[in-house]
Design a protein around this nucleic acid. Structure first.
Length: 1055
DNA sequence: TTTATCGCCGTTTTT
DNA sequence: CGGCGATAAA
């Protein structure tokens, strides 16, 4: 056990003050990122038990995620030992509520074996209900989607409204004159009024009814019923002496009320939070809870933790600059403990592919240039959307970089997993209709929709569950249905009954799954119905593993330990102080509990039930196998990254529409999200974006995030970034070593790694392995090259929405004349955008598909050198028949040539002059920009575009695309002697699929030119195809693609 | 009842 | 583009 005194001695004064704050004075700790808040929170718990002599079981510690709970538990193990830690009531609000509700279910009118209903199932219920009102909705001209309805209902549930409350609200609102309504809403849209409100209220009511009948609670219900329990039964929180809440800024109204009611007796509360990191407003988090708490606990005191121990100074400076743009925020500072370090890197790319390839390559380079100090596990790619992960994943795969995706519930959302869980849910809770509906016909028992609805109707008539109906039919107790269901469903009932028996006998969940899988021949079923049955079967195995893990962690024991001391408390407290429920009733319940406890299991805490609950309430990334993930690059959403840190953080797609998300309703929250993402970085931070993005199968222009571009309007903030990739000279290596707390590798080791790297790898950004030369990337290079692109001054990452550049819209929209030139891939796209041409039609495509002129139709009238001028054809799959294979030998030659030249060039070489843009040459090696000199922080010109026809100036080109590979001059500064690079192995370029053919001479040049790419299907065998990919999740589960439902047939032609 | 095809739709974030 | 529902056909 660690020495608490000693550890407390290591705290800074503010931290120490927070830890030692008197327990009875409510405390708000406002702690910036990296200020050691988890440390303080755990130490405070240790302090409360050790110095204030609060028994561990009297402490309630609430976290926002299970991961945070586990981490805290781990830390407390070390401080308090296993025994005492186990007694602390610790977990998420949801998990704690579930535990208490299982225990005291009957006090709030529930059964202890309720099933937690996940969002999917909720949605299905809503969908069904919504159908009933479809006609009415159409008639009243109201549009309401399932997601909409679910969202609206969830929002009010988070506020604590019951269905009746909602109904009342609607009635009241509708009774008001329209004028008044409007002013009350401050002009905002309120779904809970008018016809929509009325229908919503009805649906809410029905939804509640469905849930209750199914004996299940959704996530919001867990909180609502939790509040109900603690509010109406003060004794349920009798044990409590202190409540600690982590991530308080993310609590919603129900969670806040829970805290208040649990702390009702003791009034001792400690919360930790950071308004700047409030990123869950969309989930009804209420930042006002901070003020509310000061109100409800008038003696509340505040402490600030403003010392940042995580990030370098420059990372912190940028982060602060980002979040400070929010003028309404509470003023707060952060002091860096670490030196400045290399400034955050900001880079721009033409398309996501290139961006992703850059990221992969840069990771590789950093590992080498850090001399192995940085490993795969030290990198994270933080995304706004989960959906962005695929591109990054495959880019990493192509580079052979191990990676893992840290994504929410993915695993438990897999079709095969849900099927099996549904069976178990049904075994545990026969009333849980969603599970019944899911599996009556899995595997197919030829009971269709019609039969099922017959069953459910009858269930409603008899006021029993559908499962019971089926059981009775099979038992011959009630008559069969027309198509003889009795026979068809006998096996179903049989399976359920066997499992039920096993479960009652206390058979472990993992064994139950095994039995289940045997009983329904699930493997065969998968094989028959799923093309990727193998990996799905892997998932089944993984579910069994997960069950075993849960069993081993002994959840029954954990729960028992958490509650064991409470009974004594209640016995001692025989003279009831609150009259709400009779003493007898309470003690009856406790007696029930004691009875169960003699079997070692509390009511509602059967192994099966706990396993199911764990499946529903835990995200798969939280459990187990952390070791393995240490050697992998992490891909995660910004939300999922909260509370975590990495030596190197890379944030792609820092673009409008992504940061902030186009559908975000609170822009400030989006800004904070970016802030949270940036502050995860310890040593290096990268922000990248593209100038185009794929939407609905087409490229549309993309513009840098306003959060970033705004910083360029201010002289003070515009130098917070660099475009230079960190060359990691010794002093920088040292800084990183310090920041991430690792030994500095020897210079020799660095030199060795670097030379190794130089031998085997090329940074693909602008070397001979440029991603646009790589067939696997989509063969977009030569195509680009042959295009005639109007030139334009490079504006780099200052590229903005036309509308934002006042006075220049006109020029932006205008077609651009002047000599064609190929300056850089970025400029290329930019220029194209300016011309209003963003289109991906293959050259041979019919004219109707060719160009779409957004702003100016005259763009097409612009004389262009070749037919290819009308479209860009990168990465866009064409029909298989029309593409022609590019000739591998020529590609190889070109590559070698490029390479040998590039070695002698230390000057950036986007040198293809306008005159020399030699359209007819196969591949103009010189046209490929390569090996520019990394220059330190060259401030970018922010001059608005006036003369659009200007060609980029040399100085622009030099720095804008500073390549990662070190030029000799730079290399010297790192004290490394770089060996000459030998001819690169052709590892990047696998021969393209022979199936493809070139667009004859559509682009007017030789066959060396690429086809318009077939990004997906042309990927070499070594690369991972985009669908049907085996992915490893955090827990090491294999997951197949993204398909959750029926499989998608594999294209027969794809050999 | 199951399977194939078309066309429409949207395109956060998570307990 | 890809996922999904609705419709049509086997």
């Amino acid at each position: 056990m660690a020495d608490l005194d000693q550890l407390m001695g290591e705290l800074n004064p503010a931290q120490l003050k927070a830890v030692q704050h008197p327990p009875h004075i409510p405390l708000q700790i406002l702690a910036g990122p990296g200020s050691g808040k988890t440390k303080v929170l755990t130490m405070r718990i240790a302090y409360l038990t050790t110095y204030c002599h609060l028994p561990p079981w009297s402490i309630c510690a609430v976290t926002f995620t299970n991961k945070a709970a586990n981490e805290m538990r781990d830390r407390l193990f070390k401080l308090l030992g296993k025994d005492r830690t186990a007694q602390i009531k610790m977990g998420t609000f949801h998990a704690l509520c579930a535990m208490f509700l299982r225990r005291f279910a009957k006090f709030v009118g529930l059964d202890g074996n309720f099933t937690v209903c996940d969002a999917d199932e909720s949605k299905k219920i809503i969908t069904k209900l919504l159908k009933q009102y479809k006609d009415e909705l159409v008639e009243k001209n109201v549009t309401l989607t399932e997601n909409g309805a679910l969202g609206f209902i969830s929002k009010v549930k988070a506020k604590g409204w019951t269905a009746d409350d909602a109904r009342r609200h609607v009635e009241e609102t509708n009774a008001l004159p329209a004028q008044k309504r409007k002013s009350r809403n401050m002009g905002k849209f309120d779904p809970w009024e008018g016809e929509l409100g009325r229908i919503l209220a009805t649906i809410y009511k029905d939804y509640e009814k469905s849930l209750r009948e199914a004996n299940s609670l959704d996530f919001d219900d867990l909180l609502m019923f939790g509040v109900k329990l603690f509010k109406s039964h003060a004794k349920a929180s009798k044990w409590c002496r202190h409540v600690l809440v982590d991530e308080f800024q993310d609590t919603n109204t129900m969670q806040y009320e829970l805290m208040v009611y649990i702390a009702r007796a003791c009034q001792c509360v400690t919360i930790v939070g950071d308004p700047d990191q409030s990123i869950y407003g969309w989930r009804s988090a209420e930042i006002e809870n901070l003020a509310k708490m000061q109100n409800d606990f008038p003696t509340t005191q505040q402490l600030y933790l403003e010392q940042n121990y995580r990030s370098t100074g420059s990372i912190l400076a940028l982060s602060m600059a980002i979040v400070s743009q929010d003028k309404g925020r509470i003023q707060k500072t952060l002091h860096a403990s670490h030196p400045q370090g290399h400034p955050p890197v900001l880079r721009v790319f033409p398309i996501e592919h290139v961006e992703a390839a850059f990221i992969a390559a840069e990771i590789k380079r950093l590992v080498a240039y850090s001399g192995g100090m940085l490993n795969w596990g030290d990198f994270v790619v933080l995304l706004r959307f989960n959906s962005h992960s695929r591109g990054i994943e495959s880019a990493l795969q192509k580079e052979g970089i191990p990676n893992r995706v840290l994504a929410g519930h993915k695993f438990f959302e897999r079709m095969e997993v849900k099927d099996l869980l549904a069976y178990l849910q049904l075994v545990d809770n026969p009333h849980f209709v969603p599970a019944f509906l899911r599996v009556v016909n899995v595997p197919s028992r030829t009971v269709g929709e019609k039969t099922v609805s017959e069953i459910t109707t009858r269930a409603q008539q008899l006021k029993i569950s559908p499962l019971q109906v089926v059981e009775r039919i099979v038992d011959g107790k009630i008559p069969d249905i027309k198509p003889p269901v009795k026979k068809k469903l006998a096996s179903f009932v049989h399976t359920i009954r066997i499992l039920r028996k096993y479960a009652n006998d206390g058979v472990a969940p993992s064994k139950l799954i095994n039995a289940l899988v045997d009983s329904i021949h699930y493997k065969e079923h998968l094989a028959k119905t799923q093309p990727d049955a193998d990996s799905r079967w892997d998932n089944v195995q993984e579910l069994i593993n997960f069950a075993s893990e849960v069993e081993q962690s002994g959840p029954e024991e954990v729960v028992r330990r958490m509650f064991e001391a409470d009974e004594a408390l209640h016995e001692k407290d025989a003279e009831g102080t609150d009259g709400e429920e009779s003493q007898e009733e309470w003690e009856d319940d406790l007696n029930d509990f004691d009875g169960d406890q003699s079997r070692g299991i509390a009511p509602g805490d059967t192994p099966l039930r706990l396993f199911l609950q764990a499946s529903m309430l835990s995200t798969d990334t939280e459990t187990g196998e952390e070791e393995k993930s240490k050697e992998k690059v992490t891909i995660a959403t910004c939300h999922a990254a909260k509370g975590l840190e990495w030596p190197v953080v890379i944030i792609p797609a820092v673009q409008s529409g992504v940061f902030p998300s186009s559908r975000a309703e609170d822009v400030e929250e989006e800004r904070r999200l970016l802030y949270v993402a940036c502050t995860r970085a310890k040593g290096l931070l990268y922000l990248t974006h593209t100038t185009s993005r794929m939407m609905a199968g087409e490229f549309v222009p993309a513009y840098i995030s306003e959060f970033i571009s705004a910083l360029h309007h201010d002289k003070k903030t515009k130098e917070l970034f660099t475009e230079t990739l960190p060359p990691l000279p010794p002093q920088d290596r040292k800084i990183i070593a310090t920041v991430i707390g690792r030994p500095l590798p020897a210079d020799e080791e660095v030199a060795r790694r670097v030379s190794e790297y130089e031998k085997t790898s090329r940074h693909p950004a602008w070397g001979e392995h440029a991603p646009f030369l790589n067939p696997a990337m989509g063969d977009c290079g030569p195509e680009w090259q042959r295009q005639q692109f109007p030139s334009a001054p490079y504006k780099g990452f200052l590229q903005q929405k036309p509308a934002e550049i006042s006075g220049h819209q006109q020029s932006l929209a205008q077609p651009i004349s002047g000599p064609a030139s190929f300056s850089s891939s970025s400029t290329l796209l930019t220029a194209t955008q300016r011309a209003g041409v963003v289109r991906t039609a293959a050259p041979q495509a019919s004219s109707s598909r060719q160009v779409m002129h957004r702003a100016s139709s005259s763009a097409s009238q612009q004389p262009k050198a070749g037919p290819s001028a009308v479209g860009i054809a990168f990465g866009k799959p064409t029909s298989l028949g029309t593409a022609v294979a590019r000739q591998p030998t020529q590609v190889a030659n070109a590559r070698t040539a490029t390479h040998s030249q590039s070695r002698h060039q230390t000057v950036p070489s986007m040198r293809q002059s306008s005159a020399g843009s030699s359209k007819e040459e196969p591949i103009d090696i010189d046209a490929l920009p390569s090996v520019p000199v990394p220059t330190r922080v060259k401030p970018l010109t922010t001059k608005p575009v006036t003369a659009v026809s200007d060609r980029p100036s040399a100085s622009h080109r030099d720095t804008s695309f500073a390549a990662p590979r070190l030029a000799p001059t730079q290399a010297a500064s790192t004290n490394l002697r770089l060996p000459p690079s030998p001819a690169p192995p052709l590892t990047y370029c696998t021969p393209p699929s022979p199936k493809r053919s070139l667009p004859s001479s559509a682009s007017g040049s030789s066959t060396t030119g690429s086809s318009s790419a077939i990004a997906a299907s042309a990927a070499p065998a070594a690369a991972i195809p985009p669908t049907g990919v085996k992915r490893r999740l955090g827990m090491g589960r294999t997951v197949t693609g993204y398909t959750n439902k029926k499989f998608k047939p594999v294209a027969p032609g794809a050999s």
